[in-house]
């Protein structure tokens, strides 16, 4: 935390100034982040939709949700999506270690790894949609090096579709996390690593005993961000499969969207949003508790 000097007791004028500064931002937050929650709370207990009278139906939406096969599947898929979180951390830390050196052309490589991050998900989805089609380049490459024997319909086969989407999410995000880890690595004093090497530590030991512990706040941040991203994944699913085939790639965000904007079942959609929010809160508390034990605080 920063300095607490000279702040002391806040005087009346300071309090006023503080709120004046924050007013525009807070108004926007209240209007577009809290109002939706406040508004959808009562909505979740009604059958509000485009057709028919709206009436209070108690817990019916929630009962319906827990017996809704598609919703259960969407929760399962969203939870399954979290498998990418450890892979993102491991691969992006390795990438950061790889680009954390002063050699010719290193700037080019850093930039190259970051390009998937800056491009739109629509563009990425178009490219990977083509690459992963049954007559696509991916099948050709994998067949020519003998990893697969016959063409796979990566995105339209129910056994591979979700994994393919997870791969695309991972691929698009790696550069982002790599940059954060690179910033973390550059904050580690180089002498520390040199000293360990002189004492005969192997590269693996250096990573395990020095780099990973010093990267902890960064790992915490990246885990939190990528976990939130995984649970709330929307764009890539929406553009590439919109939940199909069947409900094989239906994630909770996509299902909430479909119930709201395609079925116009606003009441039910709100109830689903509420359930998913509770699940996400549960996971964030878990991570924060886990982090507390490690004694690291990123903010």
């Amino acid at each position: 935390m920063g300095k607490k000097r000279a702040l002391g007791y806040s005087r009346y004028s300071e309090v006023q100034t503080a709120w004046l500064f924050m007013a525009p931002g807070l108004i926007l937050l209240v209007l577009f982040t809290f109002w939706p929650i406040i508004y959808s709370l009562p909505l979740a207990f009604t059958n509000y939709s485009v057709i028919g009278e709206t009436s209070f139906i108690g817990l019916d939406n929630f009962k319906r949700a827990f017996s809704d096969v598609d919703f259960i599947a969407s929760i399962k898929n969203s939870l399954l999506y979290m498998i990418i979180v450890p892979f993102i951390q491991i691969i992006s830390i390795l990438m950061a270690v790889l680009v954390n050196r002063k050699i010719a052309g290193i700037k080019f490589f850093r930039t190259a790894y970051y390009i998937p991050v800056v491009t739109s998900m629509v563009a990425v989805a178009i490219i990977w949609g083509w690459l992963m089609s049954s007559n696509g380049v991916l099948n050709y490459l994998l067949m020519s090096i003998g990893i697969i024997d016959e063409k796979v319909n990566w995105l339209s086969d129910k056994d591979t579709a979700l994994w393919s989407l997870m791969f695309i999410t991972l691929w698009k995000g790696l550069g982002y996390y790599m940059m954060i880890y690179l910033a973390g690595l550059q904050a580690i004093p180089q002498d520390c690593i040199e000293a360990a090497k002189i004492d005969g530590a192997s590269n693996f030991q250096v990573i395990r005993k020095i780099i990973v512990p010093l990267l902890k706040p960064y790992i915490f941040l990246c885990t939190l961000v990528s976990l939130m991203g995984a649970i709330r994944v929307f764009d890539e699913v929406f553009v590439l499969t919109s939940g199909g085939p069947g409900n094989a790639t239906l994630t909770s965000s996509v299902y909430i969207y479909q119930q709201g904007f395609e079925q116009f079942e606003f009441g039910y959609s709100s109830a689903l949003g509420l359930i998913v929010s509770v699940i996400i809160i549960f996971f964030s508390i878990f991570i924060f508790l886990f982090n507390k034990r490690g004694g690291v605080n990123p903010y």
Binding site: A18, M22, Y257
Partner: peptide, 25 residues
């Protein structure tokens, strides 16, 4: 500044990370 309600605002800010965007659309 340090002022009354500061921690409350932090809490509000963090909570915005929790709501699924699709639900607010």
């Amino acid at each position: 500044f340090r002022f009354k309600g500061r921690n409350f605002i932090f809490l509000l800010l963090v909570s915005t990370m929790i709501i699924p965007a699709a639900a607010a659309l």
